[in-house]
Each structure stands twice: as structure tokens, then as C-alpha cells.
Amino acid sequence: MKYSYEQLSQQTTLFLQLLSVERNLSNRTLNAYNSDLHCFMCWCRNSQVETLDQNTILSYFHYLQSTLKQKASSIQRKYISIRQFFHYINQEGLSTERFFRFSTRKFQLPKNLPRTLTTAEIRKLISVADAQVCRSRSSFHKILNIRNSVVIELLFCLGLRIGEISALNLAHYDSEDRTLLIHGKGRKERLLYISSPEVIKKLNNWLNIRNELHPVTDAIFLNRYGDRLSIYGIENLFHKYRDLSSINPSSTPHYLRHSFATQLLNNGASIRDVQELLGHASIVTTQIYTEVSIDRRRQVLERYNARNFLFDGGELK
């Protein structure tokens, strides 16, 4: 297929429109596709590519690996974006070239286990957040500290992503049913029940004083100016309490989500239940938490490991 920057730019626009209509993707995801394709086309132009084929694409991914030394996760995302784009090119009859004769095995992701906080660290984090409410320098700071305490609680109590907390609106909370309507990735919705009476009490207390920040939005969580609390604001407040509580200095808000999932499995929840609560599209994503659920492994080994009964006089099965 002859390379033309102008033609590919036009087809990229049509491809993104198709994704938006057929798959109802979020603007963030569409922007990621657009960025991946734009970077590829710029590389083609700068490399003076004349023909697009499998070797061209393979050279581009070699460039990402060897020259830019990008992470495996970034390369795999670009692989998916570009592969889907050229599948669209084939479907539209613009080329019969087989562009992808290599698989993602060339860009295997390292298997990183989810990072979690210990129960003691979580307890300390929540306690420090509560203590800051009592130590507030002014009524204004007390309002912000009450808000912060609730955010920390929801990160762990429901295993929410920071983007999901930022996106919460007043209409998403049903105080009678004690539920929150969560808008997750891919515009998927899930309804979660707040099981902790203490968290419900804190959330209702925050909502009772929320108007003192003079809201200009219907977001549940506001910044000091009355606008929606951003994901960066949530990250900053987590880092503040993380440092004050002297827990793992490398931890992020996502550690609480990982801890939530791992402890559910440790306490006997099924992996299907955890999948639904986390809002994972595939159970494969959820299965990684079984790798860090040491309590369940301990139970299996204590109950079934033949070495435990080797000299008890019984027959090994």
C-alpha cells in the first residue's frame, strides 16, 4: 500500500468516528487511539516511508522498543490501536495487504503483581485522615479534611478508581438504599452498596456541609473553589495522608483498590463477584488478584498438602 500522510489522516478521522458510533468509546479512549495513530504517521513521514506493509509496521515497533525504549504496556496499546486501524483499512477495501503477521507475543508484558497495603497500613491511613479533621486550623480546612476522609474511605471501601470518584454526582448517590452508581471504564455502569455504617455516616456528614464550598457543579466531591475535585486533587490528598501516616512511600491511590480486591478474595468472595465489584470487563483481569491472595493459598496447603500428614500413619492419596 502506497504511503500518503493526507490519505491516512483522513481515514483516521473516519476510523475514530466509526469507533465512537459502533463502540461508544469515551473521549479519553478515542484521544488515545488518535495519539497512537498520529505518532505512527509522523514516524512514517520522518522516515520517508513510501510503502506501507508488514515490514514497515514491524520496523516502527522495533523503533519504539530499541530507540524510544518505551514500556511494554505502551507498546502493546499502540499495537492494538494500529492493528485495528489497518483492519479497518482492509475492510474498507483500501488495501489487500496483510499488515500484521506478527503477534503481541513479541511485546509480552511483564507479569507484575498488584501492589497492596497491609491491614495495619490501611488502618493507620484512615486514622490519620480522621485525626486531621480534629486538628483542622479553621472551619474551612475542617470542611476540606472531612471531604478528604470520605475520599480515602471510598477508595478502600468500594475499591474505586480515582476517576470514578471524581466523576461522582449527587444524583449517583441513593442515601436510602446506601448505593452509589459508578461510571467505570468504557462507559460501563455498576451499582455498589456501601456496607460500612461508618463510611455512610462520614459521607452523609460531608454532603450536609458540601454547600459551604459554594458549589458550581453537581459533583459530590468539590475542590476549594466549589468545582469538581479532579483526579490530580485526589492523588494529592492521598499522597498527603500517605506521608503523614508513614506507610509505604511508593503507594498510590490504586493500592487501595488492589487491597480491596485482595481482601475480598481472602475473606471468601468468589472471583466472579470481585470482577463485578471492580467493574472488570474480563475475569482474566481479575484473576491476577489470586496471585496475591496468600490466605487462600495457606488454607489449601494446610488442608491438602500431603506432607502435613506424612508421618500421621494415614495413607497418602
Rank of each mutant, 00 (worst) to 15 (best):
5 Y>S: 13
12 T>W: 10
12 T>Y: 10
13 T>R: 13
16 L>C: 14
24 N>I: 04
29 T>Q: 04
31 N>V: 14
31 N>R: 14
36 D>G: 11
37 L>N: 05
50 E>L: 03
51 T>Y: 11
52 L>D: 08
53 D>C: 02
54 Q>M: 02
58 L>H: 11
58 L>Y: 08
58 L>N: 06
61 F>C: 01
65 Q>V: 06
68 L>G: 15
68 L>I: 14
68 L>D: 14
69 K>S: 12
70 Q>A: 05
70 Q>H: 01
72 A>D: 07
74 S>M: 04
76 Q>I: 13
77 R>D: 09
78 K>A: 02
81 S>K: 08
81 S>Y: 08
85 F>Q: 13
86 F>L: 10
88 Y>R: 09
89 I>F: 05
94 L>D: 00
96 T>S: 02
100 F>D: 10
102 F>N: 11
103 S>C: 13
103 S>R: 14
104 T>S: 06
105 R>Q: 11
107 F>G: 08
110 P>V: 01
112 N>C: 15
112 N>K: 15
114 P>N: 10
116 T>D: 00
117 L>G: 09
118 T>G: 13
120 A>E: 10
121 E>C: 10
122 I>V: 05
124 K>W: 00
132 Q>I: 02
134 C>T: 04
136 S>I: 05
138 S>E: 04
138 S>R: 01
138 S>C: 08
139 S>W: 03
141 H>G: 03
142 K>M: 03
145 N>Y: 10
149 S>G: 07
153 E>K: 03
154 L>H: 04
156 F>S: 08
157 C>L: 03
158 L>Q: 03
159 G>I: 01
161 R>Y: 00
162 I>D: 10
164 E>C: 02
166 S>A: 08
167 A>M: 13
168 L>D: 09
169 N>I: 02
170 L>R: 02
171 A>S: 14
172 H>C: 05
177 D>G: 12
179 T>L: 12
181 L>F: 15
181 L>E: 14
183 H>N: 00
185 K>N: 03
185 K>P: 08
185 K>A: 09
187 R>P: 01
187 R>H: 11
188 K>A: 01
190 R>M: 06
190 R>V: 11
192 L>V: 05
195 S>W: 03
199 V>F: 10
201 K>E: 05
201 K>R: 11
202 K>V: 00
202 K>A: 09
203 L>I: 00
204 N>Q: 07
205 N>V: 08
206 W>D: 07
208 N>A: 15
209 I>M: 05
210 R>A: 04
212 E>M: 11
212 E>R: 13
214 H>P: 00
217 T>I: 11
219 A>L: 12
223 N>L: 02
224 R>P: 04
225 Y>T: 09
227 D>G: 04
227 D>W: 03
229 L>N: 09
233 G>W: 10
238 F>D: 06
246 S>D: 00
246 S>C: 00
247 I>P: 03
252 T>F: 02
253 P>F: 07
258 H>G: 05
258 H>L: 07
261 A>T: 02
264 L>M: 12
273 D>R: 12
274 V>D: 09
277 L>W: 09
280 H>M: 06
283 I>P: 11
284 V>G: 08
290 T>R: 06
290 T>W: 14
293 S>V: 14
299 Q>E: 15
305 N>P: 12
311 F>G: 07
312 D>K: 03
316 L>A: 00
